[in-house]
């Protein structure tokens, strides 16, 4: 769900050790990278390395059907063009539905694949969801390794609150990190009456730095990144001057890392 805000189509690269996703957003300003290790699943089996090209918009709609207590099983057969999701319903109050999402191939003239929704209230207590797999070129490039001058670790809820609040006031934000202070200042305020800087130094902030950095970013993207805040109690902001910001959420058996290109010049 976090990725679908940034990326509409992506390949899940599956191998024996993990499931990975790496994709740029449509405007090529942000990059999202996700890894979920095999131990993060109750059971995991991958007989053959394969990419699963998935329309994330459709997948998100399917995932909304799940409840917290549901156990979700994902299956893709060899040479199959369908990703099958099965939800085990544990709640006696769960209303069973059957959904079938089907499309064959991608029509370039169609921005969204046609799908058919079938519902029944009397089917057994599980859901079968089929999402067809699109044929995309697998992303084989390596993870972009970068050394950063600063790392700021803070509670993810604080980061979410900061960028959400500032996005109400402006379109861009300048993040400056010095030895003891992180200054997050809004830019291009929509209202001149709200033009003062907003320093946000919440508790639980750890600053590691080799060099002072000052970078400007689009708040819209930071707000989208912060949607991953529920995955981890902490978020790390890694920055160097004139290179993309890395917003990293690590969880027990994986991570979601979002890169954002800065604005240059003034």
């Amino acid at each position: 769900k976090s990725c679908s805000i940034l990326v509409t189509d992506a390949n899940f690269e599956c191998n024996e050790e993990n499931i990975m996703l790496q994709a740029m957003d449509n405007s090529h300003i942000a990059l999202v990278s996700v890894e979920i290790g095999a131990p993060g699943f109750t059971s995991y089996r991958c007989d053959r390395t394969m990419p699963l090209g998935v329309d994330l918009t459709s997948l998100t709609k399917v995932l909304r059907c799940a409840k917290d207590e549901n156990i979700c099983t994902l299956k893709a057969a060899d040479e199959a063009d369908v990703l099958n999701l099965v939800y085990d319903a544990k709640s006696a109050f769960f209303s069973p539905f059957f959904f079938a999402f089907m499309w064959h191939g991608r029509d370039a003239s169609s921005p969204f694949p046609p799908f058919f929704l079938l519902c029944s209230a009397l089917l057994p207590l599980f859901i079968h969801l089929n999402i067809s797999l699109s044929s995309q070129t697998p992303i084989t490039s390596s993870w972009p390794e970068t050394k950063y001058d600063t790392r700021v670790t803070l509670p993810s809820a604080e980061f979410t609150r900061i960028v959400r609040d500032l996005s109400q006031l402006g379109e861009h934000v300048r993040i400056e990190v010095s030895k003891e202070v992180v200054r997050i200042s809004k830019l291009k305020a929509k209202s001149s009456a709200e033009d003062e800087d907003n320093d946000s130094i919440p508790t639980g902030v750890v600053i590691e730095m080799n060099q002072h950095v000052s970078l400007t970013f689009s708040l819209k993207y930071l707000v989208n990144f912060s949607k991953s805040g529920s995955l981890s109690g902490e978020v790390q902001l890694l920055m160097s001057n004139d290179v993309p910001l890395l917003v990293a959420y690590d969880f027990t058996q994986g991570y979601i890392r979002c890169y954002l290109a800065p604005k240059i010049g003034d």
């Binding site: 300003i29 942000a30 390596s142 400007t216 890169y259 954002l260 800065p262 240059i264 010049g265």
Partner: peptide
């Protein structure tokens, strides 16, 4: 006006 750089300019491998 600041200009927005694309992510691929920093990570050519992409």
């Amino acid at each position: 006006e600041a200009s927005q750089i694309e992510i691929g300019d920093y990570f050519p491998v992409l």
